[in-house]
Design a protein around this nucleic acid. Structure first.
Lengths: 329, 329
DNA sequence: CAATATGCGCGAAACGTTTCGCTTGCGTAA
DNA sequence: TTACGCAAGCGAAACGTTTCGCGCATATTG
């Protein structure tokens, strides 16, 4: 029914091969160029991508695998990646594995079966072996698996630097709410916290290090725990968007004034922190740069350029200073 | 390189046709079933979707076209739709047209060229003719274009009911911040506002009806305008997530107490409204139901069932009552 | 002017499926 | 016993491209 390359050939009196050449940017006489262009216009010819894929073994589609689509950090990254991939001619198929390790690997297999050309994945439990077994270019995002290309943020320094600043301002009882230590980001953020204390030769009160999931419930629950402590921590640092939301809810419920009663450092959340009682100092990951770096690297790999493999891009966070850090003593 | 149906045929001694039958659930002797299953296992055979698509003219892919991926309302809808489509065997390709009418139509053409099997679109300026010309099942979401299948919320009553309640409680100067009237949702929400006043035979102060885009800037700007008025409105109703965020920012900047100084009704925003000074009463659209209804309808159309076309599903909003509506006089 | 290079176009095979129409062989009813 | 129906399997065509190798004509060079 739809017009094919054959119709265009017939219409112009040229061969199928020549039309294909035209479509793919080969050398065609100016005269014929014109006629083919017209024919395509008149017949409303559209390339059949299934047929092309069958021949070329390329689908010009990239799979994005995320732990969740409900976390703004991930959905925003998608929003930034989409036009970038599009500019390279790729469409993107988005999948979420709903924070479920079993679905994580099954969705990867699913993407593989779709024979997409590349994958951007935020891994939780999947291993390097499982990923390389896919035989598809993969670039990891946000979380690192040794031996594979990845684009992550400098989590250690993100937390280290803000904790250090708190220490310099006299804070000693600094609470921190982290994600599960099996996830590299949480592990690294914890490291940042510990190093800051080590740098200043200060002891760490382990009960101030709260660990849970990267979700609102954890933020709420662990913030309540911190607020139940005596003496109260003088500052609390959190480590994800959802934890920020949950923690602020808890602070609100306890009618706590930020930063008067307790200094609070949010993470990955621009909007809430702006409209809360007082805008809150916040660690921001470089979404745009992550998207750019991921796209660039993946496109390079999909083009067969494996120079520098495996590559680890570590990008700097920024600290949105809405409130001067309060001074203790 | 990859093993094909031919390899499986060779391995089992059966014909290609029989293997295909097996794969697609046809009648195959129990004996052969077993052998084929084994062969597929051993050879690690995977269906080549490009080849299948070429024959069947189906891609088992659905395109989702949104005005923006940065608005939680839209990205959350995607999050809900994805597993539903997956359960029917479809993947989803997500596109944003960045609120640009030109990109809106070009992305539609792009999706058409991809020869996907169906489209879920949130339209802004595209017409019914342009959509039907695509010759692809389309289900519209959130915004309605007459003559086409769509799933929308009952915007008129959403606003009508909350404004009515405000009126009953004595409010007369009720500000409202709306999106562009060319978008059906904004038009309908305005209608709801006007009807509530008409129901009670009350005059409308047109200057209280603020119109802009569905974005944060509009929310901020128009809220400031409202707050500059004398006398101050006693209540403000907004009409989108982003407008809510912008308006709350403005209220915060002016150090306004909600609901003491002014009663505020948010829209489509659960998190911020919970953590702001006091949790704010909010209109919530039924994301889950929208996703279900859209998926169900589109799948039905893709299966060729055009009964009841064009279908218009209108779903009810809910009002999250965080604060009792303040009484005036 | 002959020899060679170059640009352009063509025919045909191949990619991996699905599906149509046919054959075969078996069980069953008349 | 014959005829028939039905289940199961098969061969081959077709889907719409890309691409390889070849041939022709024109331009270039010594």
């Amino acid at each position: 029914m739809a017009t094919t390359i054959k119709d265009v050939a017939q219409y112009t009196g040229l061969s199928i091969a020549t039309i294909s050449k035209y479509i793919n940017g080969g050398n065609v006489l100016e005269d014929n160029r014109k006629r083919i262009g017209e024919a395509i216009e008149v017949l409303d010819y559209k390339v059949n991508y299934a047929a092309r894929s069958l021949k070329t073994n390329k689908t010009m589609t990239v799979g994005i695998l995320l732990p969740s689509l409900f976390t703004p950090f991930f959905s925003l990254i998608c929003a930034y990646i989409e036009p970038l991939l599009k500019s390279h001619g790729y469409s993107m198929i988005v999948c979420s594995y709903h924070d479920d390790p079993i679905e994580e690997i099954s969705k990867l297999k699913f993407l593989q079966a779709l024979s997409i050309d590349g994958i951007v994945a935020v891994p939780t439990t999947v291993t390097a072996d499982e990923l390389t077994a896919l035989k598809i270019p993969v670039v990891l995002m946000d979380r690192n698996v040794p031996g594979l290309d990845s684009v992550v943020t400098d989590n250690i320094n993100a937390v280290h630097d803000v904790v250090e600043e708190l220490i310099i301002h006299g804070h000693r009882r600094i609470g921190i709410i982290l994600g599960p230590p099996t996830v590299t980001t949480a592990y690294e953020r914890k490291l940042g916290y510990e190093r800051a204390f080590a740098d200043y030769n200060l002891p760490i009160d382990e009960s101030l290090i709260r660990i849970g999931e990267y979700d609102i419930a954890t933020g709420y629950r662990e913030m309540i725990e911190l607020l139940n402590m005596k003496p109260l921590p003088t500052a609390v640092v959190v480590s994800s968007h959802d934890i920020t939301v949950g923690a602020i809810m808890a602070a609100y419920e306890r009618k706590l004034k930020i930063p008067d009663d307790i200094y609070f450092v949010g993470y990955d959340e621009e909007q809430i922190t702006k409209v809360f009682n007082a805008p809150v100092t916040t660690v921001l990951q470089p979404l745009v740069e992550i998207a750019q770096s991921v796209t660039e690297l993946l496109v390079k790999r999909m083009n067969g350029d494996y120079s520098g493999y495996p590559q680890l891009n570590r990008l700097k966070t920024t600290l949105l200073r809405h409130q001067p850090i309060s001074k203790i003593e």
